[in-house]
Every structure is written in C-alpha cells, then in structure tokens.
Design a protein around this nucleic acid. Structure first.
Lengths: 214, 214, 214, 214
DNA sequence: TATTAAGCGAGACGGTACGTCTAGTCTTGCC
DNA sequence: GGCAAGACTAGACGTACCGTCTCGCTTAATA
C-alpha cells in the first residue's frame, strides 16, 4: 500500500517550506496558475525540485498549503497572542448585535471585499477551479477552508432562531447557503459585478422572502 | 493587414469538425480534462494537429464548441423540425401553471438531475473550472450557455410579478440567483448532496423568506 | 518487436543533423565527454532535445556519427571530385615503394601524429572508451572506423608477401596487429610517450624479430 | 592551513570499507559500471553515502581500490603466509626454463585466460575505459596494476639477453610491448577472438620477425 | 569514569541531467 | 487551399544521482 517510503518530516527544512509557499503564491499571482510550473516555483524559491516532489503530490497541493499557511499567518497577526482563538480561517465569528440582517450584511460585505481583493483573487480562483475538477483536492479545500467559515454562520443563525429572529423550522445550513451561494456564484462565474449593494439585497431577499407579504 | 491570414471557413471539412467534437468529448469523459491533450484529440479524431490549431485557439475552446454542439444536437432531437426554437441550451422555457413555487421546483429538480448526470459531469466541470480561471473563456461560457438559460427565469419571474405572485419591487435577476446559486454551489464545491428535496427547500426558503411571518 | 514506430527519415532536417554534429564535437573537445550532455548539445545546436532522442539512442551514438561525418568530410576534401575513392576513413592506401619497412614507418609515423593531434584526442578517446564498455557501440566503431583502415595494411602486407619481402607463412592480419597494437597501447594507456622513433622501432622489431639472427 | 580537514584514518571502519568493496564489485558485475551509482553502492553496503565520499574522490577510485583489494586477497590466498611476496597483482614472476618462447607463451596464455574470465571482465573493462578518459585515474591504474606486471617481463627479457636468447640491442621495454599490446588490443577492441593460439603466434612472430630469414 | 570528538548510518538538501510528453509551428505531399 | 501526417523548437514533467550538509548514535581516546 505504501510503494514509496515516506520522508522523515522531523528533518524537514522550514526555510525551504516557507520559501516554496512564498514563491508559489507570488508566481500564481504574477503569471496565473496555468503558467506557474513546479520548476518555476523551485527556481524562485532557490530550492531543488525534489524538495517539492518529496513533500507535495501536485502543484495544486503546494498552492493549497501555501494558501492555508497564508490564512493561518493572517489569523495569527489578527489575534495577537492568546486571544480567543477563532475556528475559521480569516473569519473570527459573526457579530451578534441583535439585528440579524445588519450583522449578516456586515459580514457579507466583508466577504465581498475579500473576494474583490486582487491579491487573493488569482490563487483563490486557481484553487477553487482545481478543486472543482479534482474531487480529492476539492474535499480538502472544503474541509480546511470553507467548512470552518460556514460553521460560523450556523452558529449565528442558531442564535437568531433562539432569539426568534429566524424561523424555527429553517435549517441553518440551508439558510446559510441561500446567503453565501449568490455571492460565490457571481464571483466565480463573473456574471455581474459583486458589490456591497448586492450583498445587502441578498440578505433582504433571503430573510424577507420573495413573495408579497399580506 | 491581418498578421495571420484567416482560414477560409467555406472550405472547412465538416467531417473533421464533427470527429474532433466526438473525440474531445469522449477523451474528456474517459480521462478527464487535464489528461486530455490536443495531440490525443487529433489522433483519436484521425485528424492532423494543425486542423485543430487552425480553427480553435485552445483546448478549452474545442471542448466548449463540442459541448455547444452536443447541446444543439440534443435540442434538435427534442424539438424535431420547425418547432418554436428555444433560446437556451437544453431548457425550453419554464412552465407557467400559475403556481410559481411548483413551476420553479419542477425546473430546479430537472436541473438537479442534469447536474447529477454522470455523462455530462466531467466536461461541464472541466469547462466551468476553465472559465473560472480564464476570464475570456468564462465570458463565452456565460454568454453562450448560462445567460440564455437564466433569461428564461427572468421571463417566468416577470410573469409572476405581473400576476402578483412575486413582490413587485424584487429584481428578477437577483431573485433568480437566489434560486440557482445554491444548487450551483453544492454541485461545484461538492459540499453536500444535491437532491430534489434540496431544490424544493431552496424554492420554499427563497420565496417565503427566512424570517417568521407575523 | 518494434515498440516505437520509427520516424520518417525522408523528412529529416539536414540542418539540425549537421548542427548537432558540430555541437557534439565542439562540446566534447571543450569539456570532455563526461561533462558533455545531450541537453548541452541540443542547446548549442539550437535544437529541441527530442530531435536528438528521435534519431539517436545515446550520447555515444551521436558522437560516433559526428565522428564518422567528420572523417567523411575530411575524406571528401582530401580527394576532391571523382578521384579514386579510398576505402578507409582518413587513410588513403599505404604507399608501396618496394621498401616495406620504410612504407610502414611512414604510415605509422602519420598515425602517431594523428593520435597526438590534440583536436582529435578527446573525441577519439571518448569514443574508444565507450566502445570498450558498450559492446554494441564498440562493434560499430570497429566496423566503421577501424576495420577499413586495417584492411589497407592487409593489402600492403599481401603485396609484400608476393614480392618476397614478408614471410609467406605469416598471417597478414596478425602481422598488422603486431605493428598497430603497440602504438594503440601506448596511446590508450599513456604508459610512455608515443613518438616517431617508437614507431620506427616497432617496425624494425616486428619485421626483424627479437631473437639474434645467426 | 588545509581547507578540508583530512579524516582520521586510524578510526576508519574496516567493516564499512570491505562492505563497500564488495558492493562495488558486485554491482559493477551485475549492472555494469555506468549503471552502478555511489548511492547504490552505499545502499548495498549498508553504509552512509558520506562514508564513501569521505574516503574516495570518485566512483572510479572506489572501484580501483576494490579491484586492488581483490587482487591482493587473491595473492594472499595463492601465496599463503610469508612466501616471497610478488610485486604484481596476480602474476608471480615469469618462469625461466631457458626456453624463452615457451616461457612467454605460458605466461601469455595465462593472461589470455585471465582476460577471458567473465568475472573479471566487467570491472577491468570499466576501469580501463575510465582510465583512458581520466588521465589521473589512468596513471594510477598503470602505476599500481600494470607497471608491476610489465616489470616482470622486463626482468625475464633481460635474463634472456644475458643468456643470448634475445638480441642484445633490443629494448626490453619495447620488446614487451610487442608481446603484450596485441593481446590487449584484441581484448579491448574486441576485433577478433583472443585465444591461446593467438598468443603463441604473437610470440613466434615477435621473436622470429616477419621478414624471411635468409 | 565521565567527557568529548570523530566516524558512522541515514537521509534531506540544492542542483543537474535524464528521457518523455505536449504545446504550438512548420513542411510535405495528397486531394 | 484544406487536409493528414509528422518533424521541428521549446520547455515542463517527474525521476535519479550528484556531492554537501545536518542529525543522532556509537565508539574510541582523553580528562
């Protein structure tokens, strides 16, 4: 079952690992995912190709880890020393001011900004596209990046239910998708511009429903 | 004046074109998009490589056209000879029985089935993923495949507005995204299973809203 | 039996072939055989690596052909237009002045000079060494380069036998080895300097024998 | 003052050294010199790569020492304890029965057998070929393996001169090459089979000369 | 007897070249 | 002039070794 003996992770060079992360992210940002090559990453990182092949199975896996590392470092910087460690990668809980609509709009607007950030765009698109085609990678992407963030919505929506601000019979997981999916849709498919106004509208429509209230 | 002389489309071999479509779809279905090569398509189609490079700018473009052709042929078969030609690729208008929720559920369930069809899955995913990364290709994908379908929703939702079944101040375009995006989200990202029940729930939530009605 | 389909030799690029010969010989001369790489040859020749791998099975084979081509071109230059084409690669018959010893000394001195020519040394050594280890290549080397030259000696020695200048019962093939082998030995193994005087002595010893004449 | 500190030979592991010899000879015999790698030798010997690099400058040097060790062990076995230790590697002096031709034939026949021994063939060819290209290694090869053997011939030939069986004006060193070189030539270049009969003929031709005796 | 310093097995590292594969261009000869 | 065929330049792929460099671990000789 294990045709290749695994390398000894305890002797792994941290310097190389970080250099590879940096090079991978930089190159994807500069040239796009397709034109980024493992040889290029190795050269830019000042690293032997084998050092990449030893630790990662594919270019996509390298980029994924680089991305996760980026998120983790961003998190560390945001919550300096011993704060209440958040669960997600980049989201630190959804505020609960008592006004569900306002709270959701605030978070979704932030998400819009994040998606529109040109620095993150190339690697995020690359990774998402890769995950769409490669189921294994996609599962990892979902598990490590997306699910933790979605869990925060579930928490907030459950609190809203307890407060009577959300229908008791609504499934928070599905409700959340009603809010998130339209943003993702516009961003991924580039159908129409992704704006704060759009985020607000989505919240209004989703919470209030589309049919006329009597 | 033009740097590359354009080929004379009138002398183009139809036999080769069809053979290339077939080979492309078959190979993507069998081996996945990544492992499908232009050389492979040419060999399978019994065609010179140059015949592909002469008429298409990229592997993705070949697949896209093959896909559109497939849809067109399916349409011709469905509406044999001189019927009212539908605008979209595979959707022939959304029924209007007067019951908006039922009509939407019926259409979205069909969409679920289509997305779950293993035959279509590989090329559709490949094309979508490619469009996510390659903006030009993505635009073509949206224009030729997605937008015509979405237009049908707009038509149906406007009719609903006129009938008073949909809020008059709701933007049909955004309303439609509330319905479609969650399905796309689950399918693309493979977060959770994509079922008829899910489609129904989405319609219910979207139309009725998430907050309690007084 | 033929796992790889052979390329079509009639469409082969002559320009590339010659460029590869030149690059191979130059690089071996400059850096030695070990440090000469196929990648290096391709780069220097301005040629894709595949063009080398398409036509030759190994670096040694490339060098061998380059060497044979060099010899052939030298031959063409030496015998301009329609002269009596010589059989060997670089030797154009051994003179027959009637004085066997003088003729042999003259030819062997020329051989000494050739072996001591620094331009030819590196590739010749490389090829010979490769042939010593690789039997197939060695056979080709012998057949195409060495045997034609040795045949000239056989011819001359037979003439000497007919003239009574060589023992009638001596095998010309073995006699020839008595003359040639000591030069080769010194050159290959670098035991002692290879000079004209040595060549003369070898001829004298071989012809006259080592035991005292009564 | 010394850029690289020399390793302390007194603490060297004899077990490793022998294991390396064995592995090197075995691998060259099995796979040939080219396909034998230092990593392979280290792995087969159960030794760290550095242990090889610490004590030898090159793969060829390892093989050379392994070869010398093999010869030495063979010698020890042949002359058990305190006998007159011979200088050469495998040759223990040339017999002097008074019949020069017979003595030389006997020794050259033994050499023929040695060269035809399939066990020794691969490493000997590899080492010789390496020495042909690498002058430094070649010099070592000559000094440690070839010259001691040739010295035995010089001794025997001088004795023959004193006994009047060899021309007084003949240079023993050159005479020896007349005898040895043809055998080496056939073996190295594989031109024709190397047999006892050939060895005999060489002795006859060399001693008696090629020209008719009056 | 404890300390220390070297050789050692192991193997990760930065590199180079391998031989293969595909991209996209160019050329030849058939239709 | 489009076409099938395929040779061409270019360059990335993933692998194999190179020679260097730690890492703990024995294993002397020293303190």
């Amino acid at each position: 079952m294990a045709p290749h003996k695994a390398p000894d992770a305890s002797r792994r060079s941290d310097r190389s690992r970080r250099a590879i992360y940096d090079a991978a992210l930089a190159l994807v940002g500069e040239n796009g995912y397709r034109r980024t090559t493992i040889e290029g990453i190795a050269a830019r990182a000042g690293v032997g190709k084998q050092t990449i092949y030893r630790w990662w199975p594919s270019k996509a896996a390298v980029l994924m880890e680089a991305f996760l590392d980026l998120a983790a470092r961003a998190a560390e910087q945001a919550v300096p020393e011993g704060g209440a460690v958040p669960q997600g990668g980049g989201e630190y809980g959804i505020p609960d001011t008592g006004d569900l609509a306002a709270d959701l709009k605030s978070v979704l607007r932030a998400t819009v900004d994040e998606l529109n950030d040109p620095l993150m765009e190339a690697p995020t698109r690359a990774l998402t596209a890769e995950g769409i085609v490669d189921a294994k990678l996609g599962a990892e992407f979902i598990e490590k990046l997306l699910d933790p963030q979605l869990a925060l919505y579930v928490t907030r929506l459950r609190a809203a239910q307890e407060a009577g601000h959300l229908r008791a019979d609504a499934d928070p997981r599905i409700a959340l998708e009603l809010l998130i999916a339209p943003l993702t849709h516009r961003w991924l498919l580039r159908t129409l511009p992704l704006t704060h106004a759009y985020a607000d509208t989505i919240v209004d429509y989703a919470l209030g429903g589309l049919t006329p209230r009597p």
